[in-house]
Design a protein around this nucleic acid. Sequence first.
RNA 1: GUGCCUGUAGCUCAAUGGCAGAGUACCUGACUGUGGAUCAGGCUGUUGUGGGUUCGACCCCCAUCAGGCACCCCA
Length: 425
Amino acid sequence: MKNIIPPVKGTRDFYPEQMAMRTWLYNTVRAVSESFGYQEWDAPFLETLQLYAAKSGEELVKKQSYVFTDRGGDEITLRPELTPSLARLIAARQSELAFPARWWSFGPFWRYERPGRGRSREFFQWNIDMLGVNSPEADAELVAIAASFLKAVGLTPAQARICVNNRRFMDLEFDALGIPPEKKSEVSGLVDRREKMEPGPWETNALEIGLTPQQLDGLKSLLADGERWRKSDELVRLFAALESLGLKEYTQFDPNIVRGLLYYTGTVFEAFDITGGVRRAILGGGRYDNLLRDVGGEPLSGVGFAMGDVVITLILQELGLIPPLPVTPAAVLVTIFSPELLPASFSLAADLRRAGINVTCYPESAKLPRQFKFADRMGMRAVLVVGPDEAATGKVTLKNLAKGTQETILRSEVIVSVKRILESA
RNA sequence: GUGCCUGUAGCUCAAUGGCAGAGUACCUGACUGUGGAUCAGGCUGUUGUGGGUUCGACCCCCAUCAGGCACCCCA
């Protein structure tokens, strides 16, 4: 194209239309978070590399983080996730905070990945966590928040589902199969890959890892068993709580969910679009018991999840679930008939603003067709004209753009009439 | 980081190695105080970028950049 400097790869420009969508998502996230009593917080976008070094996944830190050395020689990371920062903040004030702490956040994150459908290098993410309580019911609350969000954006249980599993439960099942502790993380990876691989290569992969044929058979029947959660007290209590919270229909037990991040210790869950359009996870989270201790705090358990803006926006767009969003904050245009009448129009606009109405003035005298066209393009609802006739008689002309009707009214009636048009739809 | 596919007007896309086109958008007018609809006219290009082959390249070859899909990973 022309000599326009391109944006950084994997970043997105937010034109007003996209910004309106981002703000709508943010407002929805806020409403859902606050409905469960969570407080908003945030951390720096820049953190030390050290914060992530031992806690996040190897892949995330070593290959996917933006790391640079600042002018003072410190290794700085553009945050790839929020949970380690959360642990840092909590640990620093552990003795003065009221627990359980219920915190949520929405902000930018960076991961050096190959951009594609549903993936960008700079994205926004909703994080929500409860710290200081370790119970299946607390886990259920976070799953319920995720379900409430899905419901709030108009996704039905037939369109989106939260798959829940438990790492302790899986550990015990692995033990029962005689899988040695040092193999468990590899086997977890194997489980994670199951959905994405053909059965043949997957089984070959399993044997390469060192599973015996009997262990492989046991693993396959474990992963196919949708009822085995009943053996786990934690999962039984979690699903019972979800039942009481009225959101169980959005959830299901799925032994195939294990998640890549190292710090999860108990409940893990991920939400998916099950209509098939986008196969990536909408959100994911779980319980982490050791994170506080790992950053130098007293042991404290937490549970939470994260949701990126890219996948959910894609899904909602495909399903047509994003409501019509106003393109301009001002739905009223005051035209400028001529240079001589500009003061009359400006003072009319000022009157409307004093009455609490958002108003745009055309910034110069121009042909009326041009000004009306501008109002139409901007999606405005009403246009006001103060021409020579109106000025001479103390009136204004008010046009309802949606209906195509107009009337010439006394200037003293204009506020009421404009408000009537704005409220009519 | 790996493999495959695609880059042509602001946008969506044509053009078999032989004059770069259509729809849409935009601008002007029909309509000298009124947007959308209709009609008429007009504008729009370093064919992503840089090389190469050829009498001649949007087309073939190489490189590079960007995007899409599948891996890897994950929000």
